[in-house]
Amino acid sequence: MAFMDTYAPPRHCPLPAIGGILLRSLADEREVALEPQGEWERLLTAANAGDGAAFARFLMQITPVIRGIIRARAVTMGPDEHEDILQEVLLAVHLKRGTWQGDRPVRPWLYAVARHKIVDAFRRRGSAVHVPIETFAETLPEDRSDEPMAARDAAAMLSQIDERSAQIVRAIAIEGENAETAGERVGISAGAARVTMHRAMKRLSSLAERMTK
């Protein structure tokens, strides 16, 4: 047998013991769970095999748990933000559920996904944390008016866009005029005024996002 003659075992197989460790780490082809450890494992296994109802049940069961983790970690954020993050986590659980190995417990995988999305949510929201106003209800003075502050903010932001757009926004959004009069004032049609208004609001909201970051 010719190949027997030419074949020689590799003289220097580098670090043979390590090969075993690494090969085991690559053995990811098992199709079915060897022994599902519990309810969540059973549900997610069924879900990944295409059972939508099982996935819905899985998500419903993990929701309170994830919500609890978020509440504990994101104490400086409000309930609305908690719910936003929760939804981001649930979406990630769906998108990445193919990375769960059927023969491993679900929990470490799930918590790693949740932790990643929570950290990510913190990073993207930056330091702009929401503290519910109710917390300060006792200590805050009577609501005189928000206007000085709002007017200053609006003026600061309007100064960042071009003059004509700023005029339109001032006329329509602050003074409450309709598009026809506002357009007339700067010499454009009502339609053009609406378009200008729409574009300006888009720019303003992205400005606002940057300012609050």
Binding site: A49, G50, A56, L91, H94
Partner: peptide, 13 residues
């Protein structure tokens, strides 16, 4: 999410 098809299993190898 439950109505969406399951994403394929990740095959690292």
């Amino acid at each position: 999410l439950a109505a969406m098809p399951a994403p394929p299993r990740l095959r690292m190898s």
